[in-house]
Design a protein around this nucleic acid. Structure first.
Lengths: 213, 213
DNA sequence: GTTAGCATGTAAGGAGTTACATGATTTT
DNA sequence: AAAATCATGTAACTCCTTACATGCTAAC
């Protein structure tokens, strides 16, 4: 009875670290976080919560009938929060930078919780990710060169577009890496993102991502 | 005993239409085609081939022991090719433009076989895809606006980057759509819009499409 | 003569989805 | 009063991967 996706577990723990929440709300936040739109189903979420409770990493409090006030009005909903074990477990994961961290499935979630990760680990993950992507570029370019002639134009265009997307992602990473290097060099604190930021708009962390346009 | 992924079936049929092939080779071509790098495993491919044979859409010929010459040297390998039914089935799929065609999982494969698809269908798929993506942009932007304040900067940056990628894809589609419109109209003058996609980027977009053939 | 790559398959299991089942609360 | 949306869960099923099992052939 092991598993239930590492990624989902981490996403849940990370979100609960920010604030206790019930399942339904968790799902919405999760959908914004992961892949940004693919809707995670309840059929995945609730069983995952269940096993996390069994492992005592989170605890659920049913807000329906709090012994003192019998009629709090609200209907049954179970608000989950991290246990001490859960916090420890989360900190352990967020402090690590294993090769898995920069694979497709893990990277986005790890990145989303960079606010709870120290600069050094952030850098190692970003660099690992960058290496992973450039390896991939090499590989695809190599095998594309080998099959060049027998491929029709649309297949070729699809490949070209795919490569361009990856190249773009590498540039994005370069910006982020520069950013982290700058911030790592001036302060030694834990966590804390680089920018003082806050001014309005969907502005990107200053120098990081301005390429294009 | 239905199914075995539509997408995989289509990819196999489409590739076999181009040329008969054995499993091992099919896999390599498939990996270039789909997602461009994610390696499809034999555990998926061979069972899929098996059911396609059972459905009589393809037929496999074992090249190991051709009755006439007992020692052709080559080891056992099964070359698959489309049956008449298979060709018909493929043509039917490639002629359709159902909503499924422009969903994430299907679109790439449909696009890869545009060479075997008529202009009108190509256009409908490209436009459907474009609509799908812009809907998604709207949706994400809307829910992002609602949660604006309580999201930290890294999560925000991730979302911003995600949106940018989708926007880029829409522009790519715009270029392709213009291209198809021009060719559908059997190229009358009309200095083409040149698809404002480019900037410093490496690849020269379009151009490749729509020549030779 | 041994490593690397060609070639074909099966069994078990992981990670998720859809569809079902149920009911409360809020909005129109 | 109806419809939407909040809220929680389970069962069955899908699609895929990993690991196993087997053996040939080319190159070093």
């Amino acid at each position: 009875m092991r598993s239930r996706s590492d990624v989902l577990d981490l996403a849940i723990l990370g979100l609960l670290q920010e604030a206790p929440m019930h399942g339904y709300e968790l799902r919405k936040r999760l959908n914004l976080l992961l892949g940004s739109f693919r809707a995670l189903s309840y059929g995945s979420l609730y069983p995952a919560l269940k096993t996390l409770v069994e492992r005592e990493l989170i605890a659920g409090v049913d807000t329906a009938a709090p012994p003192p006030h019998a009629l709090s009005g609200k209907r049954a909903r179970i608000v989950y929060e991290l246990t001490a074990d859960g916090k420890e477990h989360l900190a352990e994961i967020l402090g690590s930078a294993s090769p898995a961290s920069w694979e497709d499935e893990h990277f986005d979630v790890r990145f989303a919780f960079f606010g709870q990760t120290d600069t050094e680990t952030r850098l190692r993950i970003l660099e690992g990710r960058r290496t992973r992507l450039t390896e991939r570029l090499e590989q695809v370019r190599a095998s594309a060169a080998r099959t060049r002639e027998r491929v029709d134009e649309y297949t070729l265009e699809l490949q070209r577009h795919g490569l361009e997307q990856v190249e773009r992602e590498v540039k994005w990473l370069d910006g982020l890496i520069d950013n982290e290097r700058d911030s790592g060099r001036e302060r030694i604190g834990r966590g804390r993102p680089a920018t003082s930021d806050t001014e309005g708009g969907p502005a990107s962390p200053e120098r990081g991502i301005e390429e294009r346009r």
